[in-house]
Amino acid sequence: MVASIQGAAIPPAAQTEQAPVKLEVRDLTIRYGNQPALSNVSLDIREHEIFGIIGPANAGKTSFLKTVNRMNTFNANMHVDGEILFNGLDVRHLKNVYALRSRIGVVFPLPVGLPMTVYDNVALAPRLSGIKDKADLDIIVERCLGRAALWDEVKDRLDSLGSLLSGGQQQRLTIARALSQEPEVLMLDEFSIAVDPVTTMRIEDVLKELKEEMTIILVTNLVQQARRLAGRTAFFLNGECVEIGETEDLFTGEIKDRRTRDYVEGRFG
């Protein structure tokens, strides 16, 4: 089991190609006012892959994630052109953006433990979607905390405030919360910024397992993290998608663009 998951990092190319496309991005251009943040990005993200996006600050990585589940509606100044097809439907024209967001989980850079108990943090979304039965909620909470590798640490204090957990625990709580609605896609935006290396490794192990159940988009500025986790990786730089390819290819030579090599080898950024 473990071997097959780790093996997936260097997959037979054909296998990845066969998985159906989960997210199809065509000519995506994002502007803040007149300031371009991302121009003409086209890429496909397939089911059950971990798709890495690397690049330095201001590359447009976070803006990209925001458009996928339409968080751009929070920012009136943000203009989006191009198509984003989720399961074949253009997210920009969906009638029910809330239903869309409930199918796409997001983990932000800084952990956000909501000011309620650990239990309520994880049970929030299931309750919103109408699950009231305590036994059902118990199952969901335990399973999600377990999958986020947090259950053993908090099972005796589910009633304490989520915002009082340590940074690393809060980030795993955030992941547990994102998993509570069984999302089809999980987007992580530089999740390890405020997390210690040991916790980071534990979360990375969790992600490798979650890949079996969902599609993961991993935005990171740790090049080695993308190498450890992502099957395919895109390199964003100053609003441009410089290169997309099998992650290993970015490190082992078959690079089309010199800037990509400079970045992954740590010569800048």
Binding site: P20, L89, N96, A99, L100
Partner: peptide, 20 residues
């Protein structure tokens, strides 16, 4: 080839429910 649940989910994004 898609499982039933996926098809149902897809419709949900494009349908206004009570919550909406």
């Amino acid at each position: 080839g898609q499982p039933m649940t996926k098809t149902a989910d897809m419709a949900a994004f494009d349908r206004r429910n009570a919550d909406w």
